[in-house]
């Protein structure tokens, strides 16, 4: 399955991946309008981790047999035919059980907005937006 991985030797913690993640999932596909008009701030599907000078971003790794899908209380998380782990927001109770079983922070929650988000590999486009817009080549798609 495809997944996006981050090389911590190249990641500079700029969070452009988050900006383009949000943009790619917005109505207008434009960063300014995604944040200003649609108010999508805080809905990125990845997490930046930092320790001292090291930074790296985490996102869903589309496990072949994901615990999050097994633990999901509502059936909102599921594995698609092509192997991607997808999330049906209408069915989600936002309980966070998935977050408690995923070791890589593959699910993000915006508490204030009461929603869970996760990487869907930007499947409608050729390349995930985070990978396409990483200024330092830290992100790449791997397929095993």
């Amino acid at each position: 399955m495809k997944r996006v991985v981050c090389n911590e030797n190249y990641c500079i913690g700029c969070k452009l991946c988050s900006v383009y993640c949000i943009t790619s999932h917005s109505r207008y596909k434009d960063p300014v309008r995604a944040f200003k008009r649609q108010g999508l701030s805080g809905e990125e599907r990845n997490r930046l981790r930092e320790l001292g000078h090291v930074s790296v971003t985490q996102r869903c790794q589309h496990c072949s047999d994901p615990l999050c899908v097994q633990a999901c209380l509502t059936g909102a998380l599921y594995k698609d035919k092509d192997g991607a782990v997808l999330h049906d927001e209408d069915k989600c109770a936002v309980c966070g059980t998935c977050m408690v079983v995923c070791p890589v922070g593959g699910l993000t929650r915006n508490g204030g907005k009461g929603l869970i988000r996760k990487c869907d590999l930007c499947r409608d486009t050729d390349e995930p937006a985070c990978v396409a817009n990483c200024p330092n080549g830290a992100l790449k798609v791997v397929e095993e």
């Binding site: 633990a71 936002v94 309980c95 966070g96 408690v100 079983v101 929650r109 009461g114």
Partner: peptide, 18 residues
């Protein structure tokens, strides 16, 4: 069984607990 431990998470009243 892969995981034989209790885990609980909820988001009632807009409060997260795990």
């Amino acid at each position: 069984i892969r995981v034989a431990l209790p885990f609980n998470a909820f988001h009632y009243f807009n409060i997260a607990l795990a």
